[in-house]
Amino acid sequence: MSIIKAYGYITREHDGIIQVLVFRHSILEAGIQIPKGTVKPQECTSHTVIREIQEETGLKDFKVEKLLAEDFWENDDGIIHNRFFYKIQVCETRDEWDYAPIGGGDEDGLLFHYFWISSQAEVELSRGHGDYLHLIFKEYI
């Protein structure tokens, strides 16, 4: 059994530096993450990443730039995830904000605290979320 997931590395340029948007989950054990979600039946992965970014961040004005990577990854529960990682470009001036996701289900009642990072070394992302972060920061070395 496998699940299809779409992940978004949301990027901005701030003072000449490329940054990636991450969030701290209100459930501390969930760690620091990037927006992601499960692909619905008959939904393409690029539509999933757009939907998830809107539901999880509140952002509306962004552009899906490209698919960075696709892989198969085993989750802690043993389920295989077919993962799609996208690079998203946004012009966002806020340096941080809180947002209550509107996707429903497991996210009801949660609060996400968003902030930007400028390198892989700044934070430790939840397992699997940072697997392709080097492709974002490598482009701008």
Score class of each variant (00 low, 15 high):
56 E>N: 09
98 D>W: 13
46 S>P: 07
115 F>P: 05
23 F>N: 04
113 H>L: 08
70 E>W: 02
34 I>K: 03
71 D>N: 13
78 G>I: 03
95 D>P: 00
92 E>G: 07
14 H>D: 14
3 I>Y: 08
39 V>M: 08
127 R>Q: 12
80 I>F: 04
140 Y>N: 15
61 D>P: 09
106 D>S: 14
125 L>Y: 11
84 F>N: 15
120 Q>N: 11
2 S>A: 06
11 T>Y: 06
129 H>Y: 13
13 E>F: 11
57 T>N: 04
74 E>N: 09
49 V>L: 07
121 A>R: 11
32 I>A: 04
81 H>T: 01
70 E>N: 12
25 H>F: 05
89 Q>E: 14
114 Y>G: 09
32 I>K: 01
103 G>S: 10
125 L>H: 05
59 L>V: 02
57 T>F: 07
67 L>G: 12
34 I>F: 05
13 E>S: 11
32 I>Q: 08
29 E>C: 07
73 W>L: 05
108 D>A: 08
41 P>T: 01
126 S>C: 11
130 G>Q: 00
4 I>F: 01
10 I>D: 04
96 E>P: 00
83 R>Q: 03
130 G>N: 01
71 D>I: 03
36 K>R: 15
79 I>N: 07
21 L>E: 06
96 E>L: 00
138 K>R: 15
45 T>V: 14
83 R>I: 03
10 I>S: 06
59 L>C: 03
39 V>P: 02
140 Y>Q: 12
10 I>R: 08
115 F>E: 10
62 F>W: 11
28 L>F: 08
129 H>A: 04
75 N>Y: 04
75 N>D: 13
127 R>K: 14
55 E>G: 04
133 L>C: 09
95 D>M: 10
84 F>H: 13
129 H>S: 10
48 T>I: 02
57 T>H: 06
103 G>R: 12
14 H>L: 09
2 S>D: 07
111 L>N: 12
1 M>H: 13
62 F>M: 13
114 Y>M: 10
47 H>P: 00
140 Y>F: 13
43 E>F: 02
106 D>L: 14
23 F>G: 01
60 K>W: 12
17 I>S: 12
30 A>E: 15
62 F>K: 10
91 C>Y: 14
138 K>N: 15
129 H>E: 11
17 I>C: 01
90 V>W: 05
